[in-house]
Nucleic acid binder design. Sequence first.
DNA 1: GTTCCGCATGAATCGATAG
DNA 2: ACTATCGATTCATGCGGAA
Lengths: 275, 275
Amino acid sequence: MKITTELFLGDCKKELKKISDNSVDLIVTSPPYADQRKSTYGGIHPDKYVEWFLPISGELFRVLKPTGTFVLNIKEKVLNGERSTYVMELIIAMRKQGWLWTEEFMWHKKNSYPGKWPNRFRDSWERLLQFNKDKHFHMYQEAVMVPMGDWKKTRMKNLSETDKVRDNSKVGSGFGKNISNWIDREMAYPTNVLHLATECNNKNHSAAFPEELPEWFIKLFTKEQDVVLDPFMGSGTTLSVANSMKRNSIGIEIIPEYYNMVKRELNPVELYLLT
Amino acid sequence: MKITTELFLGDCKKELKKISDNSVDLIVTSPPYADQRKSTYGGIHPDKYVEWFLPISGELFRVLKPTGTFVLNIKEKVLNGERSTYVMELIIAMRKQGWLWTEEFMWHKKNSYPGKWPNRFRDSWERLLQFNKDKHFHMYQEAVMVPMGDWKKTRMKNLSETDKVRDNSKVGSGFGKNISNWIDREMAYPTNVLHLATECNNKNHSAAFPEELPEWFIKLFTKEQDVVLDPFMGSGTTLSVANSMKRNSIGIEIIPEYYNMVKRELNPVELYLLT
DNA sequence: GTTCCGCATGAATCGATAG
DNA sequence: ACTATCGATTCATGCGGAA
């Protein structure tokens, strides 16, 4: 089995044109939020955000297979004491573009940014918007089932043992590839709320989101050898996860440092023995 | 101290006109969702929802004090495999009406309704939209503080250290004061994610939310003797909680059965001894 | 080898100050 | 008046060194 990783350096609006129609099974991405990450990315004014994003989502629509899924991680920032409405406007605009807004998953960030203000609490959740081209998309629900009932203790014990074997799953997340080991337990389907901590203390790169996030959606919406795309690759979390899960992947990044870093760390082709 | 409960039977759009301008400190309500609870409320079509709600929110704007807060519990339903967009549209429309969309709290329903669908998981969260008339609203954050994450270790360590310090300085008069200081140290401000179970055991009918939900917002946004309004009273959860927390309350309900039930259970005037 | 503890570090936000 | 920058505030997490 051959698993490939394809990288593009440049503005994703342009680079996406190099990808053929209906060729991607899953898009998981976290674009720069409006006016956030100004130092690394340009920073888009909230009022211009929809206008900026629509051409990109148009290209994403083109490259996605009819059975594929687009997962968009986003959160509106506070502006003058109010939540901005550009995410709301984006959802409405993307529907006019042809997208179906199938679902909104909720990412509960267990360790949110600290701070105290007189008028609000810490923001501890982000949106994970699921868009589709067609009502009949692929979804492999069994792949993300979690043990029921008193599974927490069991997992905690097993975790300490399997931790060394590069099992990155964390307690409480219900993720992890070894879950099938405890399949004797009753399994249940998860909900649309994901409880994950942000990985703030990673070695070199500050990952936008924890590995479990793309891992969960890759499990849920793809099978092996499918194609996963991240048009805002960043440090490449989504791609490396996809790679280790034997999915082909495509990444686009506008900042050379990130691009080169990912290029260094990921092999363009991985060969696996048939199992 | 006198705490009053005022009840109105009828369509809240009309009944609200009986309430004077700038007289309410907090509105907490869970209106009928679009096309939900059809048997009781008649059901509003998703396409007509904004149009239906705007005159009501206009009246709510009028009766709310400039320092007051409006908490709207709502969640879009699924229509033809898609999430409807009427909540998004409502937020945008209410801003044009003059409301500030200050924040979106998330209610994580820990025991969501079971079920299985081929294209989605159980919906386990709802929106709690916070609207204000003015940027300077009342917020009593200390009233809802929660114990810190790993408070055990921190407390034990800090306590032993301060005990030594106090012994060395041996002033002796500030004995009790220190304790309360350290208790404060153990508490942290909450986030904008609320983890509450739905109350499934309510003998009455729809009773949308658990008592902890209005309780939390009443603590956060009002003080004793303030006025709390629920224009879609239902079985009166918000009112009975407000009453037991010594807040005056106003409830409006269109269905006589509900209205009479609440009327039977709540006294219009409660007298409390001054403490 | 465990366990414990110190410490840096976040996709933040407000209010004040400066141009 | 409007934008840009800065300091202050705050806490869950995971890593590394110490016991």
